[in-house]
């Protein structure tokens, strides 16, 4: 009788203890089996009813049974405690990480780096020149005659009669050609100055990249191909471009290059003044007078030159509408790029 009850309780207990998930369920189990009126003490009550002959054996069985259940209970209890303790000692992985500071290059530098990368890939060297230039290098040598209206194209800051803040990076062409015999293939980035009132659209200084290639067989067709390749690499493969005649004293023929406005895709918008085109650079074939001025044989050699403004390119590319933000160096601006 008692043995059958033990079997039954054992079966239930084994089943129930397996499904214990938390301390609350375990405590319920404890109350059910081990409390004063629980199932296990109730078995001891039944022992009283057994014959004195059976009592020692049944007592032994019952004690072993109780110890077994208690062990099972303790095991589960300690497992639950372990889990709880581990959870208490575990890191809260959801806390934020500690930020490391990494600075960045100015967005104009980053834009220039991209331009340099493309032209270096096409075999161009990179050269620099001074910002405080002689009037001769900035104008005369580049075929700007002294009393010619072409000089009005670039409002100039003078520091003396003979020295100016360079108005373009083109004097670096002169320096380079005077130093080196053809072939010369280089880009020349740098800072330039214009005596213009500061506004959202113009600033008294900005940055340019000049390009020059001189050899015995340089053609306008190559100029077009090279700049088209640059524009596609820089602005995207799907753009259209056009070259239209223009005038620069140091190139002949001269051209300006437009690309399809990437804001409106050519339909016309405020940025492109409804034309669908954006002017991105000036270029042309090096004027023979410039070759004369640097001592190159202008029959033997031909060459092309181009120049583009970096601010303008960055403004278009990043949707910046006020050129002054480049030079305010607001930390919130610098950190964006």
């Amino acid at each position: 009788m008692l043995q059958e009850k033990i079997k039954l309780i054992n079966k239930d207990f084994s089943f129930e203890i397996k499904s214990i998930k938390d301390a609350k369920q375990l405590d319920d189990l404890r109350v059910k089996y081990f409390s004063k009126n629980g199932l296990v003490p109730s078995l001891f009550a039944l022992l009283k009813e057994a014959t004195s002959k059976e009592k020692p054996l049944l007592g032994k069985i019952l004690n072993e049974f109780r110890t077994d259940l208690q062990n099972q209970f303790d095991n589960v209890n300690s497992q639950l405690n372990d889990i709880k303790n581990t959870n208490l000692n575990k890191l809260d992985l959801t806390l934020p990480g500690v930020i490391s500071n990494i600075g960045s290059k100015h967005i104009l530098t980053q834009t220039l780096d991209e331009i340099k990368f493309i032209f270096k890939g096409m075999g161009f060297s990179v050269h620099e020149g001074p910002e405080l230039e002689s009037d001769y290098n900035n104008f005369e040598a580049l075929n700007f005659a002294q009393d010619h209206p072409a000089r009005d194209m670039q409002d100039t800051f003078f520091v003396s009669d003979d020295f100016v803040l360079r108005t373009h990076t083109s004097p670096v062409q002169i320096r380079l050609m005077k130093k080196q015999k053809p072939p010369v293939r280089a880009i020349m980035p740098g800072r330039v100055y214009r005596n213009e009132a500061v506004s959202s659209r113009s600033y008294c200084m900005f940055h340019q990249v000049e390009g020059l290639y001189v050899d015995t067989d340089v053609t306008f067709a190559e100029l077009k191909g090279t700049l088209a390749s640059f524009a596609k690499q820089f602005y995207g493969d799907d753009l259209k471009f056009r070259f239209r005649p223009s005038f620069f004293p140091f190139t002949e023929p001269s051209a300006e290059m437009d690309i399809t406005c990437f804001i409106c895709k050519g339909d016309g918008c405020k940025i492109c003044k409804q034309s669908g085109w954006l002017e991105i650079l000036g270029c042309g074939m090096v004027d023979p007078n410039v070759f004369d001025n640097v001592g190159y044989d202008n029959e033997k050699y031909t060459g092309y030159a181009f120049g583009m403004g970096i601010e303008r390119i960055a403004m278009l590319k990043f949707g910046i509408t006020d050129i002054r933000v480049f030079f305010e160096n607001d930390y919130r601006f610098l950190k964006q790029f």
Binding site: K116, K120, M122, G123, F124, S125, V126, H127, E128, P183, R185, P189, T219, F220, A221, E222, K224, G225, T226, A228, S229, R242, F243, R244, P245, A255
Partner: peptide, 21 residues
Amino acid sequence: YENIPTISKISITLDKKTDET
């Protein structure tokens, strides 16, 4: 100018290239 061909190949000298920057 639109009738001037846009060439798709250029030749590059194998001379040393410099980058002052």
